[in-house]
Amino acid sequence: METIADGIIRLGSRLHNFYLLIEGGKATAIDVGCSGDLGTLVEGLAAEGLTLDDVEGIVLTHAHADHAGAAREAADKGVTVHAHRDEVDRLLGKYEGKEAITPLDLPLWKPAVWTFLSTLARRGVLKQPRLIDVTEFDDGDTLDLPGKPVVIHTPGHTEGHTAFHVPDKKVLFSGDAMVTIGLIGPGPGPQLMPKQFHNDVDLATASLERLEGIEADMVLPGHGDAYKGTPESMVEKVRARLGAA
């Protein structure tokens, strides 16, 4: 657990992040981690004097199991789950495409791959109970939840992948649109997720344009440490890395 800024708490592990956005004694959860991470969410809330009943909504960047795995258990306890309309079929188990990578898609000779897989496996990434109901949002919506997150549709990683801008905090939650750690290489720093992780890597690259004009002083990714700078400067560094690859 890490306090990023007033009212923003980072939860998860060294290799995956989810967040609490707290305002007026209520909270929005930005993702909820793997299926075994609900206890981490509850502990993070308790440290702030809150309970799961104080979570007014979970907003998902996307449906992958390291971001949405605990969503069903939270929903069963009464928390509303929100996601982009293009992500709903994945969450409900109705998606007909390839949902996520398998270990065979990865360079298994790299030690970093085994570290990544074993860390998330311990958190329950191999299990993802499907949701029964999802509240849909669309690009440009301002959600009536603590922090008033603004939806920025950034497809490519998945069809409905979403970043969230919180103007009052001057923060962008980038999900897996941009990260700051190389899960299976390269090293740390602003970058795209490895190509194996994307549904459409070209579309994920094009979606960077949607983040350039966002007014924020910090980017909080789904993987890696906070980026202390503007989204535009982070996009520039991601593109520079792509150009050097």
Rank of each mutant, 00 (worst) to 15 (best):
P149C: 03
A5D: 15
L92K: 00
E23M: 08
D86S: 15
S174D: 04
V32M: 03
I101H: 13
T154A: 06
R85C: 13
A204G: 08
E48C: 13
G147K: 00
L120E: 11
G69M: 01
C34D: 09
F18P: 02
A75S: 15
A206F: 11
A65L: 08
D76F: 03
H161T: 10
F116A: 09
D105G: 08
H153N: 04
L91G: 09
E48R: 13
D168H: 14
K228S: 15
H198F: 08
R85H: 13
L41C: 06
V42F: 11
L104S: 15
P188R: 11
K26Q: 10
D37I: 04
F137V: 09
A240H: 02
E73C: 07
G93Y: 04
A216V: 00
F197R: 09
E232T: 08
E209H: 11
D89M: 07
G140M: 03
G24C: 06
E56N: 11
L117E: 08
K228G: 14
R14D: 12
C34H: 03
D37E: 13
V55K: 00
F164M: 04
F173V: 02
Y19S: 02
K195E: 11
E73I: 13
T3H: 10
D6T: 11
W109S: 14
T180F: 05
A75Y: 05
G187Y: 08
L203V: 13
D37L: 05
T119W: 10
R123C: 12
L38R: 10
T230P: 04
L242D: 03
M178E: 04
A100H: 14
G243C: 07
A204W: 00
W114Y: 12
I9W: 01
E48N: 13
T119M: 10
Q196T: 12
E43G: 13
R14P: 12
L145C: 06
V201D: 14
A245C: 08
R85I: 15
S233R: 12
L50E: 01
D168A: 14
V201Y: 13
T115H: 14
D37F: 05
K127A: 14
S118M: 13
G224A: 04
D86P: 05
A226L: 02
V88N: 07
L126D: 15
D31A: 09
P155R: 00
L106A: 09
R210C: 04
T230E: 01
R10Q: 08
D31R: 03
L106Q: 03
L143G: 01
F18D: 00
G97H: 05
V113K: 04
E99P: 12
L126T: 11
P129H: 06
G24L: 10
E96H: 11
G213W: 03
S174I: 03
D202R: 13
D31M: 02
G182P: 07
G25R: 04
K228L: 14
L211I: 07
V32N: 04
K127R: 14
T142Y: 06
Y227E: 00
W114S: 10
Q196Y: 09
S207Q: 06
D168V: 10
A163P: 02
F18Y: 08
E215M: 07
G160Q: 00
I8G: 07
K195P: 15
L52Q: 10
R10W: 05
L106T: 05
H84C: 01
A244V: 03
L203F: 03
A75W: 06
A70K: 02
L21H: 12
